[in-house]
Design a protein around this nucleic acid. Sequence first.
DNA 1: GGTCGTGATGTTATCTCATAACACTCCCTC
DNA 2: GAGGGAGTGTTATGAGATAACATCACGACC
Lengths: 160, 160
Amino acid sequence: MDGCGHDHAQMGMKPAAVRAALDAAEAACGLDGERMTAPRRRVLELLLAAGEPVKAYDLIAAYGRDGEAAKPPTVYRALEFLERRGLAHRIASLSAYVACSHDRAEHAAAFLICDCCGATAEVPAGAGAQLAGSAGDLGFVIQRATVEAHGLCARCRPDA
Amino acid sequence: MDGCGHDHAQMGMKPAAVRAALDAAEAACGLDGERMTAPRRRVLELLLAAGEPVKAYDLIAAYGRDGEAAKPPTVYRALEFLERRGLAHRIASLSAYVACSHDRAEHAAAFLICDCCGATAEVPAGAGAQLAGSAGDLGFVIQRATVEAHGLCARCRPDA
DNA sequence: GGTCGTGATGTTATCTCATAACACTCCCTC
DNA sequence: GAGGGAGTGTTATGAGATAACATCACGACC
Ligand SMILES: [Zn+2]
Ligand SMILES: [Zn+2]
Ligand SMILES: [Zn+2]
Ligand SMILES: [Zn+2]
């Protein structure tokens, strides 16, 4: 993530795209009788603008547009909601959070995480598939899976 | 893990088996010029005896045979060593640690974690074979993967 | 046997991550 | 215009992990 001798491009959405995504998310919530309130919208906005995993306390610090930080529960509650709605995901191996990049499809996500530049790709992993075999043999019923592959993205690969 | 209406069997190794496993690990370390020192051995002993994921601070509390706790760095350094040697694994989705149950084979492990009784099975996941496809398309090189499936084990399944 | 460098440990302090608890407000419904 | 449920603000604290530095054990080398 540093000291790797090359520069890392930015990744986040442009403001117009962020607004569009926020409005779409808000509309989708409305249909389900859920409320996209101000803190939820703000946290999602920060995640979308970042375009890569963000630590909870970085969200807390960036929350106020005037540079004022939020209180931790404000952000953690928003994250809980966003995760429940499938609008954001927690990356357990990083203790960080990222906006969902699926366009509202089936939600068994896996992540490719570049340890050099921090970029992540959310791939539609039926990656439970590999596990399903072992799980079935043991009589284990999978309910959700954390699948996070670390490595180097195409731009950070030494060879290229 | 509680309030589920049924009892959960114990899982850990018996003391004799623990000692055997410790001695084997110590011998293997010796061959590689690494030292299985007292704190490392003690932490591995606790993990083996538990037979399921253990929180770091539970290890810290249980460290002293006289009931005295260890200092956090003592245990965290031992865990780092054990993980490096493949003798233990961190379960990111639980922030917990578990002794390896492979018999010294290839090490791309995946875990099936019962959310009811806490039991885990370490299965020889082919390093996210499912992911390899997506990763290759993107030019992504996977170096290590966190694969943790949560659900219900055979004994905790409601139907059975 | 002495000394030197490396790796491991002991110890203190601190940092990061996350949640409990409770009062209050908003919004919808009846 | 009450009542109830979801959401928020706020304070405080719990849980997970590491930085920094002094000291100690061990093997290599002379
Ligand atoms: Zn997603
Ligand atoms: Zn990269
Ligand atoms: Zn293993
Ligand atoms: Zn179970």
